Amino acid sequence: MSALRAPATFPERRGEPTPRRAPLTAVEGGAGRRLDAVRAPLQATSGLPFMVLCALVLVGALFSALLLNTSMARGSYEMSRLQREVGLVAQDVQEVQAELRAAESSLPQQATRLGMVPAEDMTMLSVVEGTIVAGSAEEP
């Protein structure tokens, strides 16, 4: 801490002469050093604005944490709902695929029941070229 040299002035008392005082000397730390009067430290300013600023920062951080936590919880509930929905859709797809496999395996029996017979000579039509393509019949 630095000290400014200031002249030692004492208020004058009325009626009494001002006695001349000898300068003080340091005895303990440095013998023979002269001690000078220094200016009193300035009065500390109020810490209220700093405390209010700290409180506002704390409240803002808590509010931000609350909003973040709320949005994360909402996202978690949405994700759980969507996972449940995906599970139900996957189950429906498996059921439809099982029905399709059952229908494919019973297709020849249903065709015979309806009076259909296998084709002896298959022919195909090429739509692009507009021609008839001959093919061979396959026995099931």
Rank of each mutant, 00 (worst) to 15 (best):
M72T: 02
P7R: 01
P23F: 08
A73F: 05
E85A: 01
L107A: 11
E12S: 10
S105M: 14
A73E: 02
P140C: 03
S71Q: 15
L24P: 02
P49E: 01
R13D: 12
Q43P: 13
V89F: 05
S106R: 15
Q94E: 09
R21L: 13
E78K: 07
T123N: 07
L67M: 15
A6R: 03
G30I: 12
F50E: 09
R33V: 11
A90F: 08
R81S: 08
T123L: 14
E12R: 01
A37K: 02
M124V: 12
T112Y: 14
T25L: 13
R74A: 09
E16P: 04
G47D: 10
S80H: 06
S2K: 04
V133H: 04
V93Q: 10
V127A: 06
G87C: 00
R34K: 05
L48G: 11
A137G: 05
V89E: 15
G32W: 01
P11C: 05
M72Q: 12
A3M: 09
G60L: 03
E85K: 13
L56I: 01
L56M: 05
L88F: 12
V128T: 14
G135I: 10
G75Y: 07
V96S: 07
V38G: 00
A65K: 01
Y77R: 06
S105H: 13
R101A: 11
M116W: 08
S80G: 07
F63P: 03
T45S: 13
S80P: 08
R21P: 08
V127I: 14
C54P: 05
R21M: 15
A65S: 00
Q109Y: 10
Q94C: 04
R113A: 00
P7D: 02
L58F: 04
S80F: 05
R13K: 14
P118A: 03
G29Q: 07
L114F: 11
V93C: 04
P108V: 00
Y77A: 04
P7S: 10
A103Y: 02
E104K: 08
D121H: 11
V117R: 05
E12F: 02
P19L: 03
Q110Y: 14
E16M: 12
R101V: 09
A22Q: 06
S64A: 11
M51L: 15
L88G: 13
M116E: 01
Q97S: 13
C54H: 12
A6Q: 08
E16W: 07
M51Y: 12
Y77V: 06
L56S: 01
E104F: 06
S76V: 03
A6H: 03
A98T: 05
F50D: 14
T25H: 14
V128I: 08
T70S: 09
G29N: 13
E120N: 09
A22I: 00
A61I: 12
L107S: 11
A40W: 07
D36H: 06
P118D: 10
C54E: 09
G60V: 03
S80M: 09
C54D: 15
T45L: 15
Y77F: 15
R74K: 11
V128Y: 13
A137I: 01
L35P: 00
